[in-house]
Write a protein that binds this DNA or RNA. Sequence first.
DNA 1: TTTCGGCTGGGCAGATTGTTCAGTGGAACA
DNA 2: TGTTCCACTGAACAATCTGCCCAGCCGAAA
Lengths: 159, 159
Amino acid sequence: MGIDRLDGRLLELLAEEPRIGVLELSRRLGVARGTAQARLDRLTSGGAIRGFGPQVDPAALGYPVTAFATLEIRQGQGAEVRAHLATVPEVLELHTTTGSGDMLCRLVARSNADLQRVIDRVVGIEGIVRASTAIVMENPVPLRIVPLVRQAAQDSAGQ
Amino acid sequence: MGIDRLDGRLLELLAEEPRIGVLELSRRLGVARGTAQARLDRLTSGGAIRGFGPQVDPAALGYPVTAFATLEIRQGQGAEVRAHLATVPEVLELHTTTGSGDMLCRLVARSNADLQRVIDRVVGIEGIVRASTAIVMENPVPLRIVPLVRQAAQDSAGQ
DNA sequence: TTTCGGCTGGGCAGATTGTTCAGTGGAACA
DNA sequence: TGTTCCACTGAACAATCTGCCCAGCCGAAA
């Protein structure tokens, strides 16, 4: 279930320099190549590492505006709304949350004006009762995982 | 600024099979290796590709519970709160949004009970007036970028 | 004591990388 | 029209890394 210190250091190294290969990884970890290979395989096939997809910056694609929208869904319309939102490219992420039929989605747009178009498209379906949007101004903590990995590796060490 | 069709296809290929190398990439794109190399370099150094960090599943680390917390911040306390939240490993992401001193952060926890501990730690600082938390139940659309890449490549083609 | 799984250290052929080069073709420009 | 610039092609090179194999070591569990 958890990860040990070696796994933790491996993940940290990968997070810092994702392009390094297994050989270099093994050198820095101070273990044999086969070991690094085996650990990496285990983390990957075990689901701890979902993948190494490129982290694309929407701003560089021409979508500098990010927003979060909270949607209130009419009872029983969840499936339709989910399917609808999945077809909107500007919807980067969608979660269903606690609360009466609530969803939270992350949107991007070409401009604040364009955001209106995106929102109109998002709510353009029966089943969404109400939507409230918060535009992102700053991102003081970008999506990160290393601190949590450290924590997890630390905790499992005590066991 | 934008990306052309070749860039778009390159990003799609990378998103589907992140471990393929430049040579294989060039083969699938039907271009010379140098071209694929140059495009990739340009996308990377230009900021369109932030990196290839491993996508770690918090659940595999023992943190299966995800939540979003909306924080209302007292005027002028923003910096302190940001600094505080940055020290909490369970805070995976933090945004400041429109609205009077609002922030939105993504949290993970070991369990629903553990979430209480995390929230207590998050709000354990002067400057947070109010916090409301939504626990994630499902994730119908996991963080994705390919549809947007397609859109962006499509749009730039017309120009 | 025996068995097992994880780790080490080594070797091998084959593939990939980083790098450089000369040549081609189209677009912009005087 | 002629020139220049830039992106792309196709090829070569040494160096490196990968996938795969093996035998041996060691601690933990049975």
